[in-house]
Design a protein around this nucleic acid. Structure first.
Lengths: 78, 78
DNA sequence: CTGAAAATTTAAGTCAAGGTTAAACTTACG
DNA sequence: CGTAAGTTTAACCTTGACTTAAATTTTCAG
């Protein structure tokens, strides 16, 4: 999974704990943890928008991407 | 919905039709159309990664975001 | 004009997974 | 210690991503 939600850097930049962000954004701490550990395979724009607003950043800053050759195949698994 | 998948600019830049991209990425034309018209509320990372690979760009370049004050409220409706 | 390719739209349906609550457990750290 | 922060597992609910199919519309070279 080359795309990940990278919250840590933004949290550090804003001196905020994951728990605070969860409360502010209305997300469960569980989900926050899943995001941070890269165990999520997608995201709703509503959620992404709230994270961006709370952290005052762009989607691009929250979504880390590392090019992978396998992403060029349509029939690729996962 | 302040976040949108902006494919048009990238398609133009690579001189590619939406249909071609759909085939290359393994997405239905229907879904491509829904993305382009902003009728989608989220995206799977698998899909986003493939789009990025095919268009040789970053998630940030595909996800347009416009700050909205309502995104700062946790209990916000959609 | 004309016709074919490209794109849009509607409809019906599948099912993966986003997100929740609850609860127990593990780390920091003053 | 003891408290706050973070993880993890499990059971659930619900949304909506994505599909196929098919009809319609837009686009545009010739």
């Amino acid at each position: 999974m080359p795309i990940r939600v990278t919250l840590d850097a933004m949290l550090a930049r804003r001196g905020m704990t994951a728990r605070e962000l969860a409360a502010q954004v209305g997300l469960s701490e569980t989900q926050m943890s899943l995001f941070r550990s890269g165990k999520v395979r997608g995201i709703r724009f509503r959620t992404l928008a709230r994270l961006c607003a709370a952290l005052e950043c762009t989607p691009g800053e929250l979504l880390g991407y590392e090019f992978e050759a396998t992403d060029r195949e349509a029939g690729d698994s996962d």
